[in-house]
Design a protein around this nucleic acid. Sequence first.
RNA 1: GCGCCGAUAGUCCAGCCUGGUAAGACUCCUGUCUGCCACACAGGUGACCUGGGUUCAAAUCCCGGUCGGCGCACCA
Length: 521
Amino acid sequence: MMIDKDLRQFLEKIMAYANRTGIAFMTGNIYGGLAGFWDYGPVGVEIKNRIKEAWWNKWVRNRDDIVGYEGAIITHPKVWEASGHLSSFNDPLIFCQGKCKKKYRLDHLIEDSVNVKEEGIAVEELTIENLGKIVLDKNLKCPECKGDLGKPITFNLMFSTRVGPVQDTSSIAYMRPENAQLIFSGFKNVTDSTRVKMPFGIAHSGVVFRNEISPRNFLFRVREYELMEFEYFTNPEKTNECPYFDDIADYKINIYSRSEQLQKFDEDYVTMIVQDAWDKKIFKNLWQAYWLSLFGKWFTEELGLNQKRLRFRQHLESELSHYALDTWDLEYHYPFGWKELMGCANRTQYDLEQHQKFSKKKMQFMEQVEGGVNRYIPYVVAEPSVGLGRILLTVITEGYTEEEVKGRKRVVLKIHPKLAPFDAAVFPLQKKDNVSKKAKEIFQNLRTEGFVVDFDVSGSIGKRYRRHDEIGTPFCITIDFDTLNDNCVTIRNRDTMDQTRIPISNLSEELYRNRREYQIQ
RNA sequence: GCGCCGAUAGUCCAGCCUGGUAAGACUCCUGUCUGCCACACAGGUGACCUGGGUUCAAAUCCCGGUCGGCGCACCA
């Protein structure tokens, strides 16, 4: 039976499913839960680790031009001062509740609309509550549309903590809200210890913390998550020299560009090949077009996302972060609408320049050229940045399928075998005697070969098949009485439900072959 | 952060209006049987989000909180 994955209630179905199968749970649920934080269960942690492994293999181990890095979670406070993350820290903000919905710095708004000197108001010294009182007392309205103003709030994006047992203001430190700054502040560590040549990337996967105002949509918007990203550096004079562009020039992508968004375009996107998009100057930077397309390919061809549900959306000028020249998102069509799966910003030289300024250490890259040495601060053309939990949510949303088999509902998680929590499950047809013993032996051998395998004897054989369908196990291997004589087993395919009898000695090759050749329907 | 709605077993849910100690289905566990697609037989485990209030008595009514979904806003 078809299920409409665009329906908002589908998300609730996914949550119940995740809970039922041991994928994810709200943290501390015995105490009522904590908003924005989730635990992964036995099945979820396997899928998550496999996604992470797939990312690392694809973008670090299998690339000649990218190396890995892993920074500390509690970061030197100066890093965030330099990056600009601290500058808007503790700013009091207020939002227009009227038509325009604009946000204002409340301290500035009061200074602009009230004669502070005459009234003897010291804006800097006031608490957020007292600032809010002024708004009420003076009946301040939105300067733009004269609408009512809401309650003032303080932005506290970063989680802070204290380092060391003495709790004074000098001991304050922050949990990283992004990995990028660890790459930038550690940039010299990499160039000084490794033989990297321009252009190259530094990749970083790790947990980050953002004190979001309102966590939403299950694993989508959370306060603690694993972010996988890399910074790709080039010579600032050569930001459009991408030697690999031909690899993706003919690749078809769905584009939702800035002009389409501004024109209130009715469609979700326009489809064209990357080369055309570049020729029409939709992309400003060749490397960005390259990396976005490569990730588009990875998500669809290797992680199994439906290309129709993936689009490239350019950020509007007004959305750009303080460090970004241009940003594109890869958006997925979730049950709650088109939302960012991955972001890819052009961060220019901004961050390394900032760190050079604040640390007074040279952030230059040196390369030997004809007739001397070339020194420059590298330019970040692209920063593909994606949340691990968000990929997991996307993959299970895409893969969750309900089918009708002989009048009954079958739930199948159709995910790529390399992301499945188990490579295979082994079932003895009968619980006792030699059948079970033989099954155990096959199970152990597969484990020894490095497969992740489950062993299941409980319930009828059909029930066991369905249990593993639901969590995405691509193969179930059944051992019966004949196995004892002919050394063959029945191997049953998750998606087609087809059963074939093959020799035990061919099992591992069959599992490998399927992982290699698997095609998403 | 504001507003609306909701929260009962692993899941789906009945009961709430009209207060009287929680039902069903599936799942799960055990045993018997069967032996390649959840469906046999018997038995079993398991729940009223949290804190207060009203009451002889609260899953039920009232108030606060937490969590979730949705809408708005936010997401440097």
